[in-house]
Design a protein around this nucleic acid. Structure first.
Lengths: 135, 135
DNA sequence: CGGTATCCCTGCGGATACTG
DNA sequence: CAGTATCCGCAGGGATACCG
């Protein structure tokens, strides 16, 4: 997710149409980012709050994910100097612009998940047969 | 990418609006899928062809990625019984429907990558200062 | 409550060699 | 050309303990 993503141009020096998008794609290409961003939609949310919302995430990973988003300017972190400490995370304007494409992708999935699951069963059944009777 | 993605409902038993999308999201959440799908856009492409197009991918991962897409019904694999062997991969109708949301995401990235990079530099500079003068 | 620090293990994914 | 098999390093990420 971090520093790598070394992306070279083609030998000829030209760029593929996807050039530049790779770096951004791996923003989404981790286990938690999308879900955290999604939960941030309503507005300022606290850490413990988020951890409850994003089921299954560890505190370690939640913080890691938030830091990453913050680093890329998608999330702002605000500390209220009170006791007990209170910290709120919310999407920046930039972060909010990500919601649309993200929701498109989610919508696509919702629409096609069943088709994919059927295909998967089918595929698994077939390859299983093959491995049994050595077809 | 695989079998996991255990997604539970909330204690109350209801579903979050994102329910069901997780499985699909990890389609995108791997290092190569998006780029392979993208390269498949033009139509049938051969393995070696793809490997040249998707720079940096190993044959192992290319095949792995293709198998996965095939398993989910997004890609069809066609073998021509000739020597030397010829195999073509192409997007299924289902696979093609993925292009739009995918391109949306890529477009978002292209539009905002610079902003993110600036934010990142800024963030790194600040946190560096902190760690130096123990602010 | 909101974090950081450590330990540790799984599996992603690269490199390489081999087959039809 | 297309694909499988092995070996293996290393980062992603979970569990746990501890601090202001």
């Amino acid at each position: 997710m971090g520093e790598n993503s070394s992306l070279e141009r083609t030998e000829s020096g030209d760029l593929t149409p996807l050039y530049g998008t790779y770096r951004g794609l791996d923003l989404v290409s981790d286990k938690w980012t999308v879900r955290v961003v999604y939960e941030l939609r309503p507005g300022g949310r606290r850490l413990s709050d988020l951890q409850r919302a994003v089921k299954g995430i560890s505190q370690r990973m939640l913080i890691h994910t938030l830091r990453n988003l913050e680093r890329n300017g998608l999330v702002k972190r605000t500390v209220y100097p009170v006791v007990p400490p209170k910290v709120e995370y919310y999407l920046t304007p930039l972060g909010k612009t990500l919601m649309n494409p993200l929701l498109s992708l989610c919508a696509w999935t919702n629409e096609h998940i069943e088709e994919m699951e059927k295909a998967r069963e089918q595929y698994d059944k077939e390859t299983e047969e093959v491995s049994i009777n050595g077809e």
